[in-house]
Amino acid sequence: MKSSKPCKSTMEAALDLLSRRLLTHYELETRLLEKGYESSEIKAVLERILEWGYVNDRELALMYSESRLKRYSRRRVQQDMQNRGIESELIDQALKATYSSNDEYEQCMSLAERWYTQEEKRWELKCAKDNAKRTIPRELWVRQKVTRKLVQRGYPSDMVRSVINQIGNEREDGSV
């Protein structure tokens, strides 16, 4: 038989959740509700935890944005923070502090160049194993793979297209 009343107090459960990972106000409230705690108890606990500074959506948004700066696009980070329940105003402030359009383009270019080299090597290995794979032109295969990875990271399609074309042109000029 399962008891409908949770064993831990609401405060204990909240602190236990926060001991594992930084959570937003929304995430903590949602998880406590899912565990079956009363919403009046949750509100009181959240107020206390906010007073203590254990939950700070502004700091979390800034840290989250900074930690993803080198790997993800501004749009992807913005979407991830929205999914975590951070207010739009806090998201905008955090993104303005960490992302610039020029930096984002440079990051996209850096990832594309690295992945371009990796995918060229991967294509060579696949062709060495199976000559039938040579029916797809190497350049097309590599461009598709790198484009897909960049789009998955949230970079805008016009930026990805520009970066891929620039890399392709540089490689053509270098090989002629």
Score class of each variant (00 low, 15 high):
residue 1 M to V: 07
residue 1 M to P: 06
residue 1 M to Q: 05
residue 2 K to D: 11
residue 6 P to K: 06
residue 7 C to N: 13
residue 8 K to M: 15
residue 8 K to H: 13
residue 10 T to N: 08
residue 10 T to W: 02
residue 10 T to R: 03
residue 11 M to Q: 11
residue 13 A to Q: 15
residue 13 A to R: 11
residue 15 L to H: 08
residue 17 L to D: 03
residue 18 L to V: 07
residue 21 R to I: 06
residue 24 T to G: 01
residue 26 Y to E: 08
residue 30 T to D: 10
residue 30 T to R: 10
residue 30 T to E: 12
residue 33 L to F: 05
residue 33 L to A: 13
residue 34 E to P: 01
residue 34 E to H: 08
residue 36 G to L: 02
residue 36 G to Y: 04
residue 38 E to C: 04
residue 38 E to Q: 07
residue 40 S to E: 13
residue 42 I to N: 01
residue 44 A to S: 12
residue 46 L to Y: 07
residue 46 L to M: 10
residue 47 E to S: 10
residue 49 I to Y: 02
residue 51 E to I: 06
residue 56 N to P: 04
residue 56 N to S: 15
residue 56 N to F: 02
residue 59 E to A: 14
residue 59 E to I: 05
residue 59 E to M: 12
residue 60 L to Y: 13
residue 62 L to R: 13
residue 64 Y to H: 02
residue 65 S to R: 01
residue 66 E to K: 10
residue 66 E to F: 03
residue 67 S to P: 00
residue 68 R to L: 04
residue 70 K to D: 02
residue 71 R to S: 15
residue 72 Y to E: 08
residue 73 S to H: 04
residue 73 S to R: 00
residue 73 S to D: 04
residue 73 S to A: 13
residue 74 R to M: 07
residue 75 R to M: 02
residue 78 Q to I: 02
residue 81 M to T: 00
residue 86 I to A: 00
residue 88 S to I: 06
residue 88 S to R: 09
residue 89 E to V: 14
residue 90 L to R: 03
residue 92 D to T: 05
residue 92 D to M: 01
residue 92 D to E: 11
residue 95 L to Y: 04
residue 96 K to C: 04
residue 97 A to P: 07
residue 101 S to C: 10
residue 103 D to Q: 13
residue 105 Y to K: 12
residue 106 E to P: 00
residue 107 Q to W: 01
residue 107 Q to V: 05
residue 109 M to R: 15
residue 109 M to D: 07
residue 111 L to Q: 12
residue 112 A to P: 11
residue 113 E to Y: 03
residue 114 R to P: 00
residue 115 W to F: 09
residue 116 Y to V: 02
residue 116 Y to D: 06
residue 119 E to L: 00
residue 120 E to V: 01
residue 121 K to Y: 06
residue 122 R to G: 04
residue 122 R to Y: 11
residue 124 E to L: 11
residue 124 E to Y: 03
residue 124 E to R: 12
residue 125 L to N: 08
residue 127 C to I: 04
residue 131 N to F: 05
residue 132 A to Q: 15
residue 133 K to R: 12
residue 134 R to A: 08
residue 137 P to V: 03
residue 139 E to K: 13
residue 140 L to D: 09
residue 140 L to P: 01
residue 141 W to F: 14
residue 141 W to A: 14
residue 147 T to C: 14
residue 148 R to Y: 11
residue 150 L to A: 07
residue 151 V to N: 08
residue 155 Y to V: 09
residue 157 S to F: 15
residue 160 V to N: 13
residue 161 R to W: 11
residue 162 S to C: 09
residue 163 V to H: 05
residue 164 I to F: 08
residue 164 I to N: 08
residue 167 I to Q: 07
residue 167 I to W: 11
residue 168 G to H: 13
residue 169 N to L: 14
residue 169 N to P: 04
residue 175 S to G: 00
residue 175 S to W: 05
